[in-house]
Amino acid sequence: MKTLFWGSVLFCMALLLHLVIWKVHIPQRQTKALLRIFFGILTMGILTLWITSSLITSFSLLSPKSFPEYFHIFLFFTSLTLGYIITYPGVEADSPSLLIVMKIAKSTPNGFGKEKLFDMLTDDLLIKPRIRDLVNAKMIYIDGDKYKLTVRGILFVRMFILYRKLLNLPKGG
């Protein structure tokens, strides 16, 4: 009960703070900002629970008492947070599959031709904004007219390359 209750309360507080901040100003590096907000709330929340433990109990509320209970709350919150953050880039950027499906849906009942898709969904829409995102996220940098990987970019992409090679799969995209 403690894990479900306090984990959910902290997660909802983090979501609320995220929404409020986004209404005021959307940060340039959104994923980094989300990590700071969510884990900031988690840290302050767990510290508050620990410090006010006897006060919470005096109100007949359940208070975590032991390290395993705090760790379980941490795990619960972190799993929900990671789930939200991994979904977020799909909200931030327009997915080509979803764009295609929406355009086809709008063309009902006449259908949508392939050539029209190529005309509407160009490199300027699908590729160049993603290159800019990678520069903003400091995964790549520009050296003259060439883009190169930063250390962060190398470490990040190697996870995926290793996994795809383990499954003997080709490059995705």
């Binding site: 619960f76 990671l82 789930g83 880039p89 790549i140 990987l149 995705g172």
Partner: peptide
């Protein structure tokens, strides 16, 4: 917790399969 972590893993697999940024990074690598 398990369903949330599995959802993260599913997205990790999916990113490797479909994400443009991952593909661009791979080409640069």
């Amino acid at each position: 917790i398990y369903i949330s972590l599995e959802y993260c893993y599913f997205n990790f697999v999916n990113l490797g399969e479909t994400a443009r940024r991952i593909r661009i990074l791979w080409e640069l690598c």
